[in-house]
Design a protein around this nucleic acid. Structure first.
Lengths: 226, 226
DNA sequence: CGAATACTTGATGAGACTCAAGCGCCGTGG
DNA sequence: CCACGGCGCTTGAGTCTCATCAAGTATTCG
């Protein structure tokens, strides 16, 4: 089966990318052979250490990349939503585990095919470099935030990040549970809960249900960070 | 003045890179016009928001990239030592401030020249993509480590990272002060001091002087990160 | 309807931050 | 040469945040 890899729709983890500006190559047209895969919630798509033969694009549902520590704790690196691409590696192996958060559909692309196409098409190479630089800026951004942030800052940043997906809609549906959020932010479930409750009490958000958050005051949420 | 940009010597922040493996292009030969700049300690090389006309390679001394928050706090993103390249941006502007930690010499390269060369040379584009992916993996590694880490873990990781530079030499000279280390790890100076003192008391390290650390027991330091 | 699971809230303690004081090194000036 | 001051580093005491342990509530699914 051949499925078009719509490059223009690629995203960094969670939030939409601003257009790549480095040497401004337009997103090239690209036809890559892809295989559609479906998965139930909470299944591993690949495991840390697996040979990185494929990379993936999310069609529907949500995927997380994570790592399990020897003491059983879990660290979540990022969430991927429809349109996002994950699993492109620098080395020969996947350096994180990828798991479905919800039932989901992904397309698996052959890494080797992309490598071949990049060898023949300089614009494609440039575009991917540009894309990688943009992703890196975003990862660095996260790194700074997580390294220095208090719990309220982290949660606020997370909510704003999730909200970016839904345009200007103040209501955000969280596809993942509290444990996922906690492992992503480096907090405990309890702290995430308390922080959300506190924000609700302060009027920054409302919580119609546990998986649904309405951002009432983005300005205040943003202020928590910078 | 024309100075060769030795690509093979490029590093990610602080630690040496393993060779880039993605599609294994050899580091291409590259001649780029570069301007040698000298700076005293604690001077800004560029400021967040400046147009990103140049990127830089450290010849001697140490450079830090950082961000200042509205409340005056400072977050350090990374330290760059001789051979390291910094200031390559995805967008039109520098998204962090770069400052000299010590007296230092850097070479400034014209971004536009590199873009032109990449347009003509696909191998160069591929190499930079591969390099960017490798850097990103490293940044993500940091991000995961520090999101969840306790103070002792962070300090241990920092020391090991600095030690990687000096081969297997157990003595490490820290080019930066305690405040820099604290702002890098997201801790306070006091906590950094206390943690180092504690590690010394436990026999993991010795502190011949405040800027010099001897790693006596790397295994234990590594264990802290699990 | 009942059980399992996810979520929320409370009490307590460990670890890191803040404020404050003391130490040590180094450069300057008498 | 030493006295002085400044700055960076270290150590101490109290406070605050967040993790832990524990209990209780809500939701989902059989």
């Amino acid at each position: 089966m051949s499925v078009s890899l719509a490059l223009a729709a690629q995203h960094a983890p969670i939030a939409g990318l601003s257009p790549a500006l480095w040497s401004q190559p337009a997103a090239p047209e690209l036809q890559l052979a892809g295989t559609v895969l479906r998965s139930e919630a909470d299944r591993a798509l690949y495991v840390e250490g697996d040979e990185a033969r494929c990379f993936y694009k999310v069609v529907s549902g949500v995927v997380r990349t994570c790592r399990y520590l020897s003491d059983g704790r879990r660290q979540i690196d990022g969430f991927y939503q429809p349109g996002d691409v994950f699993g492109i590696e620098a080395g020969p192996a996947h350096c994180l585990t990828a798991e479905s958060v919800t039932d989901c559909t992904v397309i698996a692309y052959c890494r080797r095919s992309l490598e071949t196409m990049m060898r023949d098409d300089n614009r494609l190479s440039q575009w991917f470099f540009s894309h990688a630089m943009t992703c890196m800026a975003r990862v660095r951004e996260h790194s700074l935030l997580w390294r220095h942030g208090r719990a309220a800052q982290k949660v606020a940043a997370f909510l704003l990040e999730m909200a970016e997906r839904g345009e200007s809609d103040p209501a955000v549906d969280l596809p993942m549970g509290r444990q996922d959020i906690a492992d992503y932010l480096g907090l405990t479930v309890e702290t995430v809960c308390r922080t959300l409750s506190h924000m609700a009490k302060e009027g920054m958000i409302t919580l119609p249900s546990s998986r649904r958050v309405v951002l009432q005051d983005r300005a205040t949420l943003r202020e928590l960070n910078s």
